[in-house]
């Protein structure tokens, strides 16, 4: 059974992610303990709310960011960031104030630029166009996933975009680099297609 360390730093969607991962067969440990993180086969970082607040909460847990960096960057353990958990991969966030992010995927987290007829937050089911990524390979061209956000990540390197979606502008619905994957949508709330994505993440060998 694949063990998953689901990072607990007070994010709102923690329980949803826990239930969905368990549903597809993961042995989930909800934790912020560096030792548990180092032992896990997979790391999932959930997140909901504002970039600055989430980054602050992550930083406030002693040794957590170091443990994540060591496990994900040095030991190349597969990593999935969900929603703000993906946004934190960026170099910095511009929500409320300028805040440094993890910087694992160079880029900026900024507000979505919407057109005159669009609404914000971008809320609901939208089409995700995957690029070539094994965890997203099951998505049909017009597969819809559930989004609930107003901010997006604009990566410096377009090669880090793993999927796109359009709402006002075309933006990164998923980012990927080596063993790191982030999704702006909520797979844990996207019914069958979302659960399938989580299952593929458990079986992913980057």
């Amino acid at each position: 059974m694949t063990s998953v360390a689901l990072i607990d730093y007070g994010a709102g969607n923690l329980r949803s992610a826990e239930r969905a991962l368990a549903h597809v067969g993961a042995d989930v440990t909800v934790t912020s303990d560096p030792k548990s993180i180092a032992r896990a086969d997979r790391i999932v970082l959930p997140g909901q709310g504002a970039f600055a607040q989430c980054m602050g909460a992550l930083t406030a847990k002693p040794g957590l960011i170091d443990a994540l960096s060591e496990t994900v960057l040095a030991n190349a353990r597969p990593f999935l960031g969900i929603c703000v958990g993906m946004q934190l991969l960026a170099s910095r966030g511009l929500e409320h104030e300028i805040t440094a992010g993890l910087g694992w995927i160079p880029g900026v987290c900024r507000q979505l630029q919407i057109g005159p007829r669009d609404r914000l937050p971008h809320m609901g089911w939208n089409e995700v166009a995957p690029h070539d990524h094994p965890v997203l390979a099951h998505l049909k061209p017009a597969a819809r996933m559930y989004f609930a956000h107003s901010f997006i990540v604009a990566p410096e390197n377009a090669a880090h975009i793993a999927a796109t979606t359009e709402h006002g502008e075309r933006f990164a619905a998923a980012l990927a680099r080596d063993n790191i994957l982030g999704v702006q949508f909520h797979p844990e709330k996207s019914q069958g297609a979302g659960l399938a994505l989580l299952e593929r993440f458990l079986n992913w060998n980057p």
């Binding site: 709102g12 709310g49 607040q53 937050p121 609930a148 107003s150």
Partner: peptide, 8 residues
């Protein structure tokens, strides 16, 4: 909205 995010 500040504590939990506007989206929820």
């Amino acid at each position: 909205a500040r504590n939990f995010g506007a989206q929820c």
